[in-house]
Design a protein around this nucleic acid. Structure first.
Length: 271
DNA sequence: CGTGTGCCCTGACAGC
DNA sequence: TGCTGTCAGGGCACAC
């Protein structure tokens, strides 16, 4: 997916068009994505005015004046296409508003949509157990220490766990651990305060830089207006198996599999 | 409880 | 306008 920076970029892009606008039409081109579209989605949103857009972790939020919020998740391959010139077979949901159309396109359909009462937004089960936003003040070294204490699971996998930190995905966990010089296979409980002091600002740096760059670009990601982002050109370790390490100039980047997903790291300088 | 595995789905690419 | 195998930014259900 779209990790946090891509969702943030997407939400900002949508907000330029949708904020304050009335939803004239909402069309579902199939009954489901990963999960069935919620009951009454079309009826609830047709005619509603968008009051604000937001983001929590990797979830986009479209708030309306009907006291309801549409939550969308982009899965691995989801994106919004704005004013697509031609329809695509993976445009599963289309919103028309303010003379524009917005198609939620997701070939793999790992993404989904839900509709909740805005007042109870953070009671939504996924949000209720989610950890702090990495870019806010809530994420502290103390929080990380408490969340990692005694854990034997690899630090890489714990950082991907949305209950520990909300919004990190495979790319930015690899990049942050690399830049902080932490071995991704180390048990979370053995990553001590000095390393966490390095890790925390590093997480913020990679996410913020990526947002500045407009979201990273892999082959199935584009900004809402179709422009490609370009953080991908700044990856220092992700996807660089066999290349020399740019930190220590001595090691060679390795790829290993953790939890069924690839991790790239430098065995020489990540301890 | 914590931890590990398989799987949902389509598309791109490498190698034959 | 070949085939087959592998991999992909996520997260859930299930087994132990």
């Amino acid at each position: 997916m779209p990790e946090l920076p891509e969702v943030e970029t997407t939400v900002r892009g949508l907000a330029q068009f949708l904020d304050g606008q009335r939803i004239e039409r909402l069309v579902l081109n199939r009954p489901d994505m990963r999960f069935p579209f919620p009951e009454g989605l079309v009826q609830s949103l047709t005619g509603a005015r968008v009051t604000a857009l937001g983001r929590r972790a990797k979830y986009g939020l479209i708030h309306t004046d009907r006291d309801s919020t549409m939550i969308f998740h982009l899965g691995m391959s989801g994106r919004w296409r704005i004013d697509p010139e031609t329809p695509d077979k993976h445009d599963h949901l289309v919103i028309e508003a303010a003379g524009h159309s917005f198609a939620l396109n997701d070939p793999r359909r790992f993404g989904y949509v839900d509709l909740v009462d805005t007042a109870a937004l953070y009671d939504w089960p996924t949000f209720a157990v989610m950890g702090p936003e990495p870019l806010g003040d809530e994420l502290t070294v103390e929080h990380l220490r408490a969340a990692l204490k005694g854990r034997r699971q690899a630090i890489k996998l714990l950082l991907l766990d949305q209950r520990v930190v909300a919004g990190l995905g495979n790319i930015y966990v690899c990049e942050a651990l690399f830049r902080a010089g932490i071995n991704p296979r180390k048990a979370g409980g053995r990553v001590f305060r000095p390393a966490l002091e390095r890790l925390l600002p590093t997480i913020r740096d990679v996410l913020e830089q990526s947002i500045v760059d407009g979201g990273s670009s892999l082959r199935d990601y584009a900004k809402p207006d179709g422009e490609l982002g370009y953080f991908a050109t700044r990856f220092q370790v992700y996807g660089r198996e066999g290349e020399p390490c740019v930190r220590c100039d001595d090691g060679v980047v390795r790829r290993v599999v953790q939890g069924g997903r690839s991790t790239w790291f430098c065995p020489k300088c990540q301890h």
